[in-house]
């Protein structure tokens, strides 16, 4: 009985082999799918293509096609002083925020690198709380703090440090403070991930060879942390120039960044072609920076 079943199985598997040559059965097709995991990508690729790729292609076409092929939208962007100023202001704010984040983030990452495990955990929580807190909540908090009647002004007035409220919101200062607060955790995490990997024996070697503590820092530690400085700065700058919410809520009329320009063109003026063209200028700047920083910034290593 058992033997005959064995034979039956064998025969069956032989006929399977024969069949495979001609036409795989659907159960085998699944088997083939699973044995070639690359096919798992089909569904995600379709999803991205339909819900992101096609829409992007669509607005790209809108930016160059207006009944006929045209470059009018791009020409308009680069020929009118107003738009160039917005682009330059965006890059300027991005640069200021990057520098502020670097100056503030470096000592924190440095302290974390040499802190005890417990202190490290505490600092990490302190960085992650704002990181995970809703962007709107944080922006709201800054509005509460920085207003003319806000917490900071009230405190400073009570302490007699100032005699009339300082204007810290609805201007560039507000935008820089708000964006620094949002982007600082990214900078710290980038710096820390590099600093953590620095071989501490090199520092001892430096001081054994007679370097003073500051020299050990400036000649050994600082150069070794350079990849972190680059990746953090690039990341903060790239993210910063695309910001929309923070400048909209904390900036003034004159501090419009490029994202706000796009929003106004679409939302208020229904000027799709021009908005699409500005978007692709911004996208081009972003992609260019990503290519330039490829050596330091790997997308899959960020989080």
């Amino acid at each position: 009985m058992e033997k005959s079943m064995n034979i039956a199985v064998k025969e069956n598997s032989m006929s399977n082999k024969v069949q495979r040559v001609f036409e795989p059965r659907w159960t085998e097709r699944i088997g083939i799918t699973l044995s070639n995991p690359g096919t798992l990508l089909v569904l995600p690729v379709i999803f991205i293509a339909v819900f992101l790729g096609y829409p992007l292609l669509n607005i790209f076409i809108q930016s160059i096609y207006n009944g006929h092929l045209t470059s009018e939208y791009y020409v308009r962007f680069f020929s009118e002083g107003l738009y160039i100023r917005v682009l330059l202001l965006t890059l300027k704010i991005g640069a200021i925020v990057t520098l502020t984040c670097l100056v503030l983030g470096y000592p924190v990452a440095y302290t974390m690198t040499f802190a005890s495990k417990r202190a490290k955990g505490l600092i990490l929580i302190a960085i992650l709380i704002p990181f995970w807190t809703s962007l709107l909540v944080r922006t709201y908090a800054w509005m509460v703090l920085l207003q003319t009647q806000g917490v900071v002004n009230q405190m400073l007035l009570k302490l007699g440090i100032i005699h009339e409220p300082i204007k810290m919101i609805y201007n560039t200062t507000g935008v820089v403070i708000g964006m620094t607060h949002v982007l600082l955790p990214y900078m710290i995490l980038c710096l820390y991930s590099v600093m953590q990997g620095i071989d501490k024996n090199l520092l001892s070697a430096g001081s054994n060879l007679g370097a003073r503590p500051f020299q050990v820092f400036s000649r050994v530690f600082l150069p070794l942390s350079f990849p972190g400085i680059m990746s953090g700065s690039m990341l903060v700058f790239i993210m910063g120039i695309g910001y929309f919410i923070t400048p909209s809520l904390l900036g003034g009329q004159k501090d419009s960044m490029i994202s706000q320009l796009i929003q106004i063109q679409v939302g208020d003026l229904l000027n799709w072609g021009f908005a699409s063209a500005i978007s692709f200028v911004l996208l081009a700047v972003t992609l260019l920076l990503l290519m330039l920083s490829r050596r330091f910034l790997r997308l899959d290593k960020l989080w």
Binding site: V45, I48, F51, N58, Q62, G242, S279, L282, W303
Partner: peptide
């Protein structure tokens, strides 16, 4: 390349994704 395409939304300014998706 495919991996980078999948990770693009991490760094592409959200406003661009927003108007593309809105138009679609």
């Amino acid at each position: 390349l495919l991996q980078n395409i999948f990770l693009m939304p991490l760094v592409v300014p959200t406003i661009i994704i927003a108007i593309a998706v809105y138009s679609f």
